[in-house]
Amino acid sequence: MDYSILISPSLGILVGILMGLTGAGGGILSVPLLIFVMHFSVAEAAPISLLAIAIASSVGAILGLKNKILRYKASGFMAIFGLLLSPVGLWLAQRIPNAPLLILFSCTLFYVSITLFIRARREILGMPSVERKPPPCLINPDKGKLDWNIPCARALMFSGGLAGFLSGLLGVGGGFVIVPFLKRYTDLSAQSIVATSLGVLAIIASGGALFSIASGNMNVLVAAPYSLGALVGLLIGREFGKKLSGPRLQQIFSVLVFVVAIGLIIKGLSTI
């Protein structure tokens, strides 16, 4: 009996719950779970992860659009550059040995976990944010829309492109890139930032997943139930997230990411 038919939707549910609880960056553990449990390489796991993230983030983006908190023009602009660079990352992932990819992925996880933990700790302690000059992307109070200018466009272009490249290379979606960039370079509310990030992820991950299917690099038999499970898990996580979300949960998640990063780097170094 092929137990992957049962295992993959279960893993998808877990990833979806994490996304529902922690927001756009929860999908970063999708690939590590596929690596440890299903014994895939990074290149094999990345397309499966992208399909699951595409479906789950699309639902979140639609809800954000319905609630009028998704900045669809900014999402579309960032996604254009993400779509351009996502195939480059996918192409490289198929040509780079698995061990270096595992080490690169673990370094990414270390960065995300430490940054997330520090941010949550500052929020718990009520520490004031560091003063900085006004961001380039500001909401026009009269129009209720972003005022576009060259520095704003440049910041959004870079964040979208980087998110797209990493989503293709590592299958991570890119929420951990987009959310901090939007916080730094815009004055959007926290809810609007998450919704806008999900809008970008929905487009980039969908493009990456379609490219993987067209190029024959997608294991559809695993990806389909895994993605369906992620969608179910996302809806469950959103319900629990209404009661459990907060900086303390973010700290717990960051510790989990850090532990996974240690496991990945050990696995990567052992295969060199």
Rank of each mutant, 00 (worst) to 15 (best):
G161D: 00
A163W: 00
F165I: 07
L166E: 02
G171E: 02
G171R: 03
G171Q: 02
V172W: 05
V172T: 03
G174R: 00
G174T: 05
V177H: 02
V177N: 00
I178C: 11
V179A: 13
P180C: 09
P180R: 09
R184T: 14
R184I: 09
Y185K: 05
D187Y: 04
D187M: 10
L188N: 03
L188G: 09
S189D: 15
S192T: 14
S192Q: 03
V194G: 02
A195Y: 01
T196V: 15
T196C: 07
T196G: 04
S197E: 10
L198Q: 04
G199H: 01
V200D: 01
L201K: 03
L201M: 15
A202E: 05
I204T: 15
I204P: 03
S206Y: 11
S206R: 06
S206Q: 09
G208S: 06
A209S: 12
A209G: 06
L210V: 13
S212C: 08
I213A: 13
G216P: 06
M218S: 02
L221P: 07
V222E: 06
V222A: 07
A223C: 12
A224D: 04
A224P: 04
A224W: 15
A224R: 10
P225T: 10
Y226N: 08
S227P: 09
L228H: 09
L228R: 12
L228K: 08
L231I: 12
V232Q: 07
V232L: 14
G233N: 05
L235E: 08
G237M: 01
G237T: 03
R238S: 08
E239N: 13
G241Q: 03
K242F: 12
K243M: 15
K243E: 14
K243H: 13
L244N: 07
L244E: 08
